[in-house]
Nucleic acid binder design. Structure first.
Lengths: 144, 144
DNA sequence: TTTAACTAGGATAAAAAGGTCTTTATATCA
DNA sequence: TGATATAAAGACCTTTTTATCCTAGTTAAA
């Protein structure tokens, strides 16, 4: 479904969100440990998310990654996915055809439409605040 | 969503199905031309599908790939996807975690459940016969 | 000025995608 | 019957993309 980079990116961002709720910064090392991801790879993904403006970073001792608490409710999963994997999952044809739309649909175009719409709705409707809160309440997990 | 191999595999199988409805065999070359796919790569995918028993092949002159007409209604998209990409799309965690189920869900587990169920239902509910018939009627396309 | 942290870039490894060539099966024709 | 041509099967190789690692910089607090 998503690339490894995107999977790590989402999990990392959720951890940063949880820490930000408690006014802590999350260091690269802490994030990688928390989500059990390769450190250097995670670094690149985070850099990308910083460039995109989804999270922010502070260099130097006591530095790390953070997200303004006010923004947590407005950041949706879709933004993270879009920043890392692009929009192929929304726009691309399910069978990889270049041109595939209502006027010249691939064999599964109509059948896929619903699944795709569901996915889009889910990604656009799920905020970091919700994900972070659920994790914080012990309802969900980031490891294993 | 699917690997390139799976996309080609689905498209190739649909073309074989259409030809089988007209009692023709489809040669590798014809298939690759029809779905605009790399010939050798397509060959491997077809071999895989033959081994899985989804399509059958005949060697030698006038040989090619075919599907028993009777079977077309019973072959579902899900079988093709499963043969090529495996069951990760149904069973795997959306965020790539090893253990992720109702008892220890990842942050998007519940949200993904619906999308996944939709996808599964769609793949398991769509038969080759339907796809081949729609293509034959000019309602859908395999190229571009 | 030391040190903890992010930044930047390339290097390497693994997996996916695609290509080449040889072998095997089989229909057809001499 | 045997030779030939056609088409899939199989083994191996190259390229591209994705994932991962490493090393040297830059920033800023203490």
């Amino acid at each position: 479904m998503f690339s490894k980079a995107c999977e790590y990116g989402i999990r990392a961002t959720i951890h940063v969100a949880v820490q930000s709720l408690e006014d802590n910064r999350a260091s690269l090392k802490a994030i990688a440990a928390e989500i059990e991801s390769p450190v250097a790879f995670t670094a690149k993904i985070l850099q990308n998310l910083v460039k995109t403006g989804i999270i922010s970073s502070v260099m130097g001792p006591a530095g790390g990654f953070e997200i303004e608490k006010k923004k947590l409710d407005n950041i949706k999963l879709s933004q993270i996915v879009d920043a890392i994997d692009g929009d192929a999952i929304y726009k691309g044809c399910g069978l990889g055809m270049k041109q595939c739309d209502a006027s010249k649909p691939c064999p599964v175009h109509d059948k896929f439409a619903k699944v795709r719409a569901d996915l889009k709705e889910m990604l656009e409707g799920t905020s970091l605040l919700v994900l972070a809160t659920e994790l914080d309440n012990g309802l969900t997990f980031l490891k294993r």
